[in-house]
């Protein structure tokens, strides 16, 4: 069991999903991939298909229109899976909170493991959030 836990914490693959935001957080997520921050150091890769990924990186407010798509993509990911809400919009709705077409936070739709605050958060904060997910997983499972 220890070996599998080691493997899971050493190779988290990300799926980036924009649920209707302004693309500010997306640029920060992409910045975490580029040579300056290089999250491949921790074995993370950005994957296109939900079937391949372990961590769903959510950015932007959850609009009513995208809610069902988000649920579907979450269900398409194989277990064990984690969700990170990045930016104020994904945490609580941000500046769009109270709008006629927006949910108040991603946790109303899918279970969220870690929240990364900021508008937008820095790439360092995003990397820290992903590492926190893995630390939590390491502690939670015996």
């Amino acid at each position: 069991m220890g070996l599998i836990k080691w493997a899971r914490t050493k190779s988290p693959w990300l799926l980036h999903f924009n649920s209707g935001g302004c693309a500010g957080c997306d640029i920060e997520v992409v910045a975490a991939l580029n040579p300056k921050f290089d999250i491949e150091r921790f074995g993370m890769l950005l994957k296109g298909s939900p079937r391949h990924s372990d961590i769903l990186v959510l950015t932007g407010p959850i609009t009513f229109q995208i809610k069902n798509r988000l649920k579907r993509i979450y269900n398409q990911m194989p277990e064990p899976k984690f969700v990170i809400a990045i930016g104020s919009c994904a945490i609580s709705g941000g500046v769009y909170r109270g709008c006629y077409n927006v949910h108040e936070g991603a946790d109303k739709v899918v279970p969220v493991d870690v929240y990364v605050p900021g508008c937008p958060p820095k790439p360092e904060a995003i990397i820290d959030g992903i590492i926190k997910v893995l630390k939590n997983y390491e502690k939670a499972t015996p």
Binding site: W6, A7, S11, D38, E40, G43
Partner: peptide, 20 residues
């Protein structure tokens, strides 16, 4: 840098991916 923290200089990275 590429894979860095899995084993010496990330040498075990493909093995970790495979096991995961």
């Amino acid at each position: 840098y590429g894979p860095l923290h899995t084993g010496p200089r990330g040498l075990l990275q493909p093995f970790a991916d495979f096991l995961k």
